[in-house]
Structures are given as C-alpha cells and as structure tokens.
C-alpha cells in the first residue's frame, strides 16, 4: 500500500512562505509527477513528504497513519536524489546494503535482495566497484537499487535524470516507467521537464509558487488546461497566446492555440492571420515555423509537416482549428 494524503500542509522558511496551505491525495500505485518552473516549491514538497523538512503546519498521512512527526527513515519511503547521493567510500554492494544493514536485517536476506536488485538493474558486474568508478547512468542505477531493496511503500524521485545527458535520459525514463509497471508501487517524481512529466505520469501536479495550479492526467492537462500558466507550461513547443482585438471577438481577454493546431493555408481560404516567416526549424519529421508580424502575438509558432517548403522571408497565411482554441480571461483563468 502507499496512499499519501497531504492535509493543509504549509511550509515557511523564516518569514518566507514557500508552500501556502496545500491539499493533495496520491492514490496507491499511482505514478505522480510534480512539475513546475524552478523555485515553484516542487522539491520542497517532496522533501516534506520524505520528512527531510518539517512541515510548518498541516498533516501528512501515509496509508491513513499520521507521519507528520515521524523521522524520515520510519516513513517507509525511499528517495532517489538528483546528485544520486551515493556514499563515495562504500562499494556498490555496501551502498545498496546500507539501508538493510541499518534496519538490522540478517546478512543472508541482505544478499538475496542485493542480488535481485543488481540483476534487475544490470549492476551484477559492478557490485565491488566504488561509485567514483561508475558512469552517470550506472550511478543512477545504484541509487535506484538502494531504493528498491528496501521494498518501500513509495518511491520519491528528486529530478533524478537532470544530471544525465540527453540520450541516457530517454533510456532511463523508459526504465523507470517499466519499473513502475512491474512493481506497481506508488512513485512521486519531481521534474522541471514537462516532457518527462507527460511521458511518465499517471497524474501530473503542476505547481507555481507553492500553489497547485492543476492536477490531472497528462492528456487532461493538455486538452483542458485550467489556466494560462498550465496551458503555457504543458506542451512543446509552447502554446501561442494572442491578445487584443482577435481575442475580443471570441469573448476572451487572451486566446491560446497550440502550434500543432495552426495551419498554413492558401490566401483567402479561411485564413485568419498573415505574417512573414522568420526562422523555419526543419526537424525532419516536423517543421517549426516562427511567423512574425501578427497582431497580438509575435512570433507565432506553427507546426507543419516535415517536407514543407518554406523559407525565411516568405509571406504565409495561417488558419486555426477553431475547436482547439483556448480562451482565458484577464486573470488567466479558462473561460468556456
């Protein structure tokens, strides 16, 4: 089991309130991602759950039990840190064994668990090395191994992939997802990368300045962002926001339309905007075209097919799928 409930949790550092009263429920077996820009309080929230920071007020419940004043190691959680936080003076085997040894487990049982974890994570050949002799990806695996052997009620990941290079990151992303499918243990994962959030999460929690902006499945957030912040944060490239006259005609202060919902069309065939091409980024599969000179939105990004023939300086005419336009009021809230 691993149902985690936060009730009116707040956190202050001195006079600075980093988490205003916050309520959140994480169901057993869920993969939840906390996402938001740096400084939004997502790591602090994770550390509050872990017990590495004390809550200023409110309660944290794990499987119905109040753990607010229980030390980190007694909460039954395991954490994987951004810098891996391996013990540099211990071998990989000793690193993985450390939590078991601290729990007073007998050696035979320790070894069975270490072997199992090492096999699952492809670490068998490295058990006697020191962390300093391993690559970044291998260190990450050891950190995960150290978490797995404890058989925790929930895993906490604090930006675990941000120190890896791009190719490795994609691979580890898949591995962690597969691990979750296999273990079915609750996982809480903190990242600032919305691609990680979208690809891994069952449920995304978008945070800004310590406030929960929206909670929902990745596609819910993509389809129906509750406000302009979530709309801009989820999706890549970013949603285009258009204010002014055009928004007014649709009864909104600002309208938003994702690049993939804007098309290039011949002149006079339903075109809404006209502009000049600045840069066209050809990715092969897609082309991202940045169009300048559009009233209320400069530049507007358009996602077109990979083979489209467009160059710098061309004049283009654009139309949007009207059913995919998001409307926001002057405070950024969604208007339906």
């Amino acid at each position: 089991m691993g149902r985690i409930v936060l009730e009116n949790v707040t956190k202050k550092f001195g006079d600075l309130e980093v988490i205003p009263p916050l309520n959140l429920t994480i169901e057993d077996g869920e993969f939840v991602v906390f996402v938001g820009p740096s400084g939004c309080g997502k790591s602090t929230l994770l550390r509050l759950i872990a017990g590495l920071e004390e809550v200023t007020s409110g309660r944290i419940l794990i499987d119905g039990e109040d753990v607010t004043n229980i030390p980190p190691s007694k909460r039954g959680l395991a954490m994987v840190f951004q810098t891996y936080a391996l013990y540099p003076h211990m071998s990989v085997r000793k690193n993985i064994a450390f939590p078991l040894r601290m729990a007073g487990m007998n050696e035979a049982e320790q070894n069975t668990r270490i072997e199992a974890a090492a096999t699952a994570l492809n670490l068998t050949d490295y058990l006697d090395r020191k962390p300093g002799q391993l690559s970044g990806g291998q260190r990450q695996r050891v950190a995960i191994g150290r978490a797995i052997v404890r058989d925790p009620t929930a895993f906490l990941f604090d930006e675990p992939l941000s120190n890896l290079d791009a190719a490795l990151r994609v691979g580890m992303r898949l591995e962690i997802s597969e691990m979750h499918k296999k273990l079915k243990t609750t996982m809480i994962y903190v990242t600032h990368d919305q691609v990680e959030a979208m690809t891994m999460a069952d449920k995304i929690v978008v945070l800004q300045s310590g406030r929960v902006e929206q909670v929902g499945s990745p596609l819910d957030l993509y389809r129906e962002p509750r406000n302009a912040f979530v709309a801009g944060f989820i999706g890549s490239p970013k949603m285009n926001f258009i204010d002014g006259e055009k928004a007014g005609t649709l009864g909104a202060h600002t309208i938003g339309v994702r690049p993939e919902h804007v098309q290039i069309c011949p002149k006079g065939e339903g075109d809404v905007w006209q502009g000049k091409v600045g840069v066209a980024e050809h990715l092969g599969s897609d082309t991202f075209i940045h169009v300048h000179g559009i009233d209320g939105c400069d530049p507007m990004t358009v996602r077109a097919g990979g083979e489209v023939k467009i160059n710098h300086g061309d004049t283009v005419y654009l139309s949007a799928q009207m059913d995919q336009i998001h409307k926001f009021d002057s405070e950024g809230h969604r208007v339906s």
Partner: peptide, 27 residues
C-alpha cells in the same frame, strides 16, 4: 560533504551517532 549524502543516510535510517561514524568521519 554534499547535503544530499547526509539526507540519503537519514532516509536509510541512520542514527545521529551512526551518521557521524558511518558517513561523516569516513568522508
């Protein structure tokens, strides 16, 4: 000594004295 290593120790269930003996002094 990275804070995170000390915190990892806390998550792994090390006592204050254990923290000094097992992590701090060796490092």
């Amino acid at each position: 000594i990275p804070r995170e290593i000390i915190e990892a120790g806390k998550m792994d269930g090390v006592s204050t004295w254990g923290e000094v003996r097992e992590i701090l002094i060796p490092l």
